[in-house]
Write a protein that binds this DNA or RNA. Structure first.
Length: 325
DNA sequence: AACTCTAGCAACCGCCTTTCA
DNA sequence: CTGAAAGGCGGTTGCTAGAGT
């Protein structure tokens, strides 16, 4: 909480030379009421005008933040449900710290709330888990917790922290877990659960849920986001609408079983012209700056995350859940 | 009861992008 | 076209309340 009586100075309005004294710090109930009343009567507009017209000695930014994070009528207060918690972890495994993107998938939750939750709760839990698994050799043969959702969460967090190449798959596996409650059913649909831990990175809890084996072709899971369809075929969305070439939008289907023959998978990936799909837009310009993991294995293809079309991404993954309450 | 520690969270900061005069 | 303002976002700070000692 901030000290309530800080005063700042700010110019107000594009053409205004007016200098007003602005309050900082905690919002008083009176300020909340003013802003709430104004917003309900007039709706959203220019925040600087809102601040002025509502009679608030606050900057527009501050009003916006207060409204979005606290006053909005559709906000859901209170603790995160287990489903929300899982979804946050899932989404974070793909999106990273894009809190607003994550929040847009959780109705009634704000990016700030989710960010705080992640930083205060989930991160800490991960740290504890890491320490436990480091310090306890017995955990390598851990049979897993009795709570499969917890296993998945831990796995997701572990992978998210240790290997970004795997996070996408973890996301996929985790998504499955949101619609199924038993770990056995997870084996059926999820890439991660069906795949092998070629990296030897999966935590014991997750290894317990996989047909774990190791071999020398460890990097073959670098496919970005994807999963198995009903036939067990690996389906890889074309990096989520990263390219603007509408004729190529959709999902590419990799034939072959990557578990059985990962090398073929790599060949198939190339043969479906992923290079084109992933990093070039309609004009042929390099569009995507970096795709997590790819650069390690496709030298010369400089793909980056910054310009992903996330809506396209979500659109191309029908199983990605919204929480709808 | 007094003090310390820490989790939770509201709000600010600073940077980047978008909009507009 | 350009520069300034506004909007948006992620990172960070620092206060409060409650638990622990």
């Amino acid at each position: 909480m901030r000290k309530p009586e800080q005063i700042g100075v700010e110019k107000v309005g594009r053409n205004s030379s007016a200098i007003v004294k602005l309050r900082k710090g905690l919002w008083s109930p009176e300020e909340d009421e003013k802003l709430m009343n104004y917003m309900l009567r007039n709706g959203q507009g220019c925040w600087t005008d809102i601040a002025r017209n509502a009679g608030l000695q606050r900057c527009g930014k501050s009003c916006r933040l207060r409204w979005i994070n606290y006053l909005r009528p559709d906000l859901k207060r209170g603790a995160f449900s287990p489903q929300e918690e899982q979804l946050i972890i899932h989404l974070h495994s793909i999106l990273g710290n894009r809190w607003s993107q994550i929040a847009s998938r959780l109705p009634g939750r704000t990016d700030n709330e989710i960010k705080n939750f992640w930083n205060s709760t989930i991160k800490k839990r991960l740290k504890v888990n890491n320490n436990v698994s480091k310090n306890s050799p017995n955990n390598s043969t851990d049979k897993g917790s009795s709570d499969p959702s917890r296993d998945i969460m831990e796995a997701a967090m572990f992978i998210s922290m240790h290997d970004h190449d795997l996070t996408a798959m973890c996301m996929e596996s985790s998504l499955t877990s949101t619609t199924t409650t038993s770990s056995s059913s997870m084996h059926n649909n999820s890439m991660l659960m069906r795949g092998h831990d070629h990296f030897g990175l999966l935590p014991p809890l997750l290894q317990n849920n996989t047909n774990h084996e190791t071999n020398g072709t460890s990097n073959l899971f670098n496919v970005g986001m994807g999963g198995y369809d009903d036939c067990g075929i690996l389906e890889v969305p074309y990096m989520m609408g990263m390219e603007n070439d509408n004729t190529n939008l959709g999902s590419g289907v990799m034939d072959g079983d990557i578990n059985a023959n990962p090398t073929n998978y790599m060949v198939d990936k190339k043969s479906t012209n992923f290079n084109h799909h992933f990093n070039r837009d309609v004009d042929g310009k390099v569009k995507v700056e970096e795709v997590v993991g790819f650069e390690n294995h496709w030298p010369g293809e400089s793909l980056k995350m910054g310009e992903w079309d996330l809506e396209g991404l979500f659109a191309s993954i029908p199983s990605l859940p919204y929480l709808d309450f």
